[in-house]
Structures are given as structure tokens and as C-alpha cells.
Simulated scan of single mutants.
Amino acid sequence: MSSRAAIRYAKAILDQAKEKGTEEVVFGNMKSIDATLNASKELRSVLKSPVIKPEDKRASLKAVFADYDPSTLSLIDLLVDKKRSALLGQVAQSYVSLYNESKGIVVAQVTTAVELDASLEAKILAKVKELTNSSEVTLEQHIDPSLIGGFILRVGDVQYDASVANQLVSVQKEFSKRL
């Protein structure tokens, strides 16, 4: 969940990127920043640490994201200057959401116990397109072995849980009621 400040920064960078015609490049940068921060606990710790000097945070971020668009690098500078570098991940997520929304792209998240094969992925995409009346759908797949089988599909605020783990919990609750 992004904070209001992160959303404001994301809107500002999106507006700036639209003016320059670089919103797709910045979109790629933001997806990469989000993935990098999610993968690196150490980098997240550096950004949140009040002990690490802003110059060191800036140097670290510029080293990791050196070849990014100037708009993205100026955002990093701004966040460090304002002592809000810890918001970088949230800003990136907000930018991706705002970009998708502005392009009419629906993002569906599917969580399964194992990797989806191509035919099943195509069926899920077709069903989400049908349900949302959208021609552009992006599917984000997550793997969670604890589901045992089945899937969980989330589109916006709607979630459909057809996992074996959920069905087992339902059966357990039903048994508990009858005892």
C-alpha cells in the first residue's frame, strides 16, 4: 500500500515523463526499481537507515541505477534531498499503477502452487479480459507452494480463491461447527 506522499511523487514523475515523451522508459525504470528493492533487503535497509548519510544513499542508488532515464535519476535526487529515500519503492509501485491506469491496462495477479503453463495462462488472460471488458490485461504470476493446488486470482479489489488450502480450511471450519 502506497502512502499519499508516494502517490504524489509518482503523479509528478508521470506528468514530467509524459511532457518529455518518456513515460514508457520511466515505466521500465520503475518496474526495475521495484523488483530490485523487493529482491534486496540490504538496499531497503540502507534507504530506511537514519544513520547512513544522504550522500551515501545517493551514491548507492546512483551506482545501482546508473543507466536510468534522467527523470528517474532526478526523482532519486529529490527523494534523498527531502530525506524520503525510504519511499522509493512505494513511488515506483505507485508509478506503475498510475501508468497502467492511464493506459487502460488491467493487472491481474494469479497465485498458484506451481508455474502456469502457456495454455492455462492464455485461458486466465482471456477470462480476465472477458470479466473486466478490457482489451489490455497483464498477468503477474506468484508461486506459493502452501496453496497445495488450485489458484488465487486477484483483479483490483476482487479476489477469487480456488485453492486447495482454502477448501481445506473451509472443510475444517465446517467440521468444527458440527462438533
Rank of each mutant, 00 (worst) to 15 (best):
L120N: 09
L47P: 09
L125D: 10
M1H: 12
L43Q: 08
Y9F: 12
V80P: 00
V128A: 10
D144T: 09
V51W: 03
E42L: 08
V114F: 10
D34I: 09
V107G: 01
A17T: 10
L139G: 09
V114L: 13
Q159L: 13
L87H: 03
G149N: 11
E115A: 14
E42M: 05
V169N: 14
A17D: 06
D157P: 05
I105L: 05
A17R: 08
L168V: 01
V64K: 07
A86E: 14
P54R: 14
G150N: 08
A86Q: 11
G149V: 10
E174D: 13
L73F: 04
K127L: 13
E24M: 11
K83P: 00
S74L: 07
T138C: 04
A126K: 15
R8W: 01
K31Q: 14
A113F: 05
Q16P: 00
V26F: 04
R58C: 01
G28M: 05
E23G: 00
Q93Y: 05
Q141K: 15
G21H: 06
N38I: 07
V128C: 14
A86R: 09
A39L: 09
N100V: 00
Q90A: 11
V64G: 06
K31S: 08
A59S: 14
L75M: 07
D117F: 07
A39D: 15
K18T: 10
D15H: 06
E121V: 02
V91Q: 03
K83L: 09
I7M: 05
G21I: 06
Q167V: 01
S60V: 13
T22F: 10
Q159T: 15
A92R: 04
S94A: 15
I76S: 06
F27W: 11
R8K: 11
Q109M: 06
R178W: 04
R154N: 09
K83A: 11
D81F: 00
V80W: 04
S49Y: 07
L87V: 01
A122H: 03
L116A: 08
F27I: 00
T111I: 06
S3L: 07
S3T: 15
L37P: 13
L179D: 02
D69H: 15
A12I: 01
Y99N: 00
L88C: 05
D117M: 10
D15R: 13
E174M: 12
S85R: 00
Q16A: 12
G89N: 07
G89W: 05
G104L: 02
S60H: 03
Q90V: 02
S102C: 00
V114K: 15
V80H: 03
P50D: 02
V80A: 04
N133V: 06
Q90N: 02
L75A: 05
K53Y: 03
L88Y: 08
I52Y: 03
A10Q: 08
L153H: 10
S2N: 13
A122V: 03
L168H: 01
S32C: 10
Q93P: 00
S60Q: 12
D81S: 13
L120F: 12
A118T: 14
D56M: 14
R44L: 10
